[in-house]
Every structure is written in C-alpha cells, then in structure tokens.
C-alpha cells in the first residue's frame, strides 16, 4: 500500500517534470515552428538566475516564479531580435543557429560560474508515508505543472491575445492584413516561450546539481515530448508527457534509473516511427 502511494507520486512527478521541461519548447517549437536547440540552456540559465538571486537574499519562491522567468524571457527577447528573427521559416538554419547559441550560453555560463556544480536546497521538507520518505518538493512541481497547463489552456483558448497569437502562427499574412504586426507577435510569443523555459529551469534547479552543461539533459526529453505530442499544443503535451513519464518510472523501479532514461528514449524512437505526426495527429484531433 505504502509502496503504491510512493510509486503513484513518483509517476505523477515524472509526468509533471516532463510537462515543465517541455512547455517552453511547446510554445516555441509547437506554435512558432522554431527548433530551439538552446532550450536546455534557457532552462540552465533559469536555474543560475534563481541560485544567484537566492544568494543575494531574495525569497526563493520569488526568485523561482518571478525573477527567473523574467530574466530568461528578456534574454530570449534579445536572442529573437538578434538571431531568430532572420531565420523564420528556415527550419534547418534555425536548428543550427540555436545549436550555436546553446554552445555560446554554455561557454558564457562556464566563464561566469565556473565549471563546477552549484545548487540550492529544496525549500519544502519531505515527509514519510509508512516506511518510505517522499520529497515534499515533488508536490510543488506537480502543482506548478498543473497550474501551468491550465494557464496555457486559458490564455490560448479564451483570451484575445491567445487568439491573435494562434491566428498569426497559422497565417501571418492574414494577421498582418487585419492590422496586427506579425513581427511583434512573434517577438512576444518567443518571450513567453523563453520565460516558460526559465521558469522550468528555476523550479527544477533545487532538485539537480547545476553545471553549465545541464541543458543537454533536458533538450532531448523536451524535443521528443513536444514532437511526440503532435499538432495539438496542450493535449499533445499532456498525453506524451504521461506516456513517457510512466515508461520512465516503470523501468526506473524495475531495473535502474539509467534504464528508465534509456527506455524513455527508446520508446520515443518507436513512437515516432509508428506515429510520425505525433500522438494528437491520430487521437484527440482538433483539441487545443
């Protein structure tokens, strides 16, 4: 009984962290079709911003939920203006340029913070269920992920801003004809995507030892989650994150954490082979 509770919580946590990792990319790649290979580095920077802010005496929740997304969002804005703006619609070129950016950020972080592991302790204490100890912070991650998904749904589906953004992504020429500037909407959307990445990196920072190359650990997971999710943004995110999260945890419990990771990646390759357009191209069609 106790064990099953623990496993259930761990699975929910795995799904929630996948949702968090992928949400920023879902906006940037899923909506804007920009293959942002620097996504992991945006998360890494979110983590460093949090640690720096906490070191300066800011409350950890303020640092994680407000400062990190803002700072990373602004970095994203600069990146969009300087690089991405020139490459819209050129899939392969964006992929290469953002990979260059990711190396650049890794280099910068190494120069500023050094090639050492830094971290902060989790702000929420753990508690016990029967014979097992559960990390209380896992619940925080689950809550953040749920709030995030609901917020994304509401913003995209029921606000005017979301409608304009979605319309512009589908037909920029039509949006321009209706008096909206696609350039500025792209800019704003990229800001939101980067801010989400920063938020994810910040929230996950207390759980991992942060090194400048931490981003690499996220990027593959984020991509396969978003791509396997398919065309529907939120429904795809949830369905693929659930699938991969469960696979990961089952193999982690059955064999070892490394095999959990490998099983996740292998299942992604198989899934992409079977459903190359993603889960939501076949199921949940037309949902957000």
């Amino acid at each position: 009984m106790d064990l099953s509770v623990v496993i259930l919580v761990e699975m929910l946590y795995a799904v929630a962290s996948l949702v968090l990792i992928s949400s920023g990319l879902a906006v940037v790649f899923g909506m804007m079709k920009v293959i942002n290979l620097a996504h992991g580095e945006f998360m890494m920077m979110g983590g460093y911003v949090t640690i720096t802010a906490v070191g300066l005496g800011v409350n950890i929740f303020v640092a994680m939920l407000i400062i990190a997304p803002l700072v990373v969002g602004l970095i994203g804005l600069v990146v969009e203006r300087l690089v991405i703006r020139h490459l819209y619609g050129r899939l392969v070129d964006t992929m290469l340029a953002t990979w260059g950016l990711s190396l650049l950020f890794i280099g910068l972080a190494t120069m500023i913070f050094g090639n050492t592991t830094t971290g902060i302790s989790t702000p929420i204490p753990g508690f016990t269920v029967g014979n097992y100890q559960i990390n209380g912070y896992n619940f925080f991650i689950i809550v953040v992920a749920v709030v995030l998904v609901i917020a994304m749904l509401v913003v995209l589906k029921s606000t005017r801003l979301g409608l304009i953004a979605r319309g512009t992504m589908q037909r920029p020429d039509m949006a321009a004809a209706l008096g909206y500037s696609p350039d500025r909407i792209y800019m704003a959307t990229f800001f939101c995507g980067s801010a989400l990445s920063g938020l994810a990196g910040a929230v996950l920072a207390p759980l991992v030892g942060l090194v400048p190359t931490s981003g690499g650990a996220y990027i593959a997971k984020a991509f396969i989650t978003v791509i396997a999710g398919g065309p529907s943004l939120v429904a795809g995110l949830i369905s693929s994150a659930s699938l991969f999260g469960v696979v990961n945890q089952v193999f982690t419990f059955a064999i070892s954490p490394v095999f959990g990771e490998v099983a996740l990646l292998v299942s992604a390759v198989i899934l992409l082979r079977l459903l190359p357009q993603g889960v939501t191209a076949k199921f949940f069609k037309g949902k957000m």
């Binding site: 490459l87 070129d93 990979w99 190396l103 650049l104 120069m111």
Partner: peptide, 19 residues
Amino acid sequence: IDNTLIMGLILVLFVLFLP
C-alpha cells in the same frame, strides 16, 4: 575565453552571414 563560446559564436555567425 571559453572554447565552447567561440565555437558557438562561429556557428551562429556562419549561419547568419555565410550559410
């Protein structure tokens, strides 16, 4: 200057200016 930074910069600049 960190090595990775320069490699990254080279890639970005080439994609933008000399693809």
